[in-house]
C-alpha cells in the first residue's frame, strides 16, 4: 500500500465508490428515471474499473506511432484487451439505457406515474 495515491489506485477506488453509489440509487430511489440514471452510474464505474485494470505504470496507449516502435511494443504499451472490452461495453450500455428509457415511457403511459411503488402489476 505504499503507492496508494498513484493513478491506478485512485481510479479503482473511484470506480468502486461509483459502484456503491449506483447500487444505492437503484435500491433506494422511487422515481424510475432516477433508477435508470443509477444504472448508468454503475455502467460507468465498470468501464472505469476495466480501464484501470489495463493500466501499467510508465507505459502508453496501445497505438504504434513515434512514441512506440514496432520492435519492442510489448514493453511499451498497456494491455489492449480490456480497452476492446470497454469499447464493447459502452455501446451495449447505450443500447440498454435507451431500452430502459423506452420501457419507462411505456410504463408512464399506462400508469400515469413515475413512482415505482405505484406499479402494482410488478408485485406478486
Amino acid at each position: 500500500m505504499t503507492n496508494l495515491f498513484s493513478i491506478e489506485y485512485i481510479t479503482i477506488f473511484t470506480s468502486f465508490a461509483l459502484l456503491v453509489l449506483g447500487l444505492w440509487g437503484i435500491i433506494s430511489q422511487k422515481n424510475i428515471f432516477k433508477i435508470i440514471i443509477s444504472f448508468s452510474i454503475v455502467n460507468t464505474s465498470i468501464h472505469l474499473l476495466l480501464v484501470s485494470l489495463a493500466y501499467i505504470r510508465n507505459r502508453t496507449a496501445p497505438i504504434i506511432d513515434s512514441a512506440v516502435d514496432r520492435v519492442n511494443a510489448a514493453e511499451k504499451v498497456v494491455d489492449p484487451v480490456p480497452h476492446a472490452l470497454v469499447l464493447t461495453a459502452i455501446v451495449i450500455g447505450i443500447g440498454i439505457t435507451a431500452l430502459m428509457l423506452s420501457y419507462a415511457f411505456t410504463m408512464y403511459k399506462q400508469h400515469k406515474t413515475l413512482d415505482i411503488n405505484q406499479y402494482k402489476s410488478l408485485k406478486w
Partner: peptide, 26 residues
Amino acid sequence: SRDELNELAGYYATEGLSEVGAANLV
C-alpha cells in the same frame, strides 16, 4: 498493479503487428 502484459496481450502486441498490420492494437 502489474508491470507486465499477460501472455495473450503480449501475443497481440508482438505477433499482431505483423499478422494484422494495424497500428492501433485495440
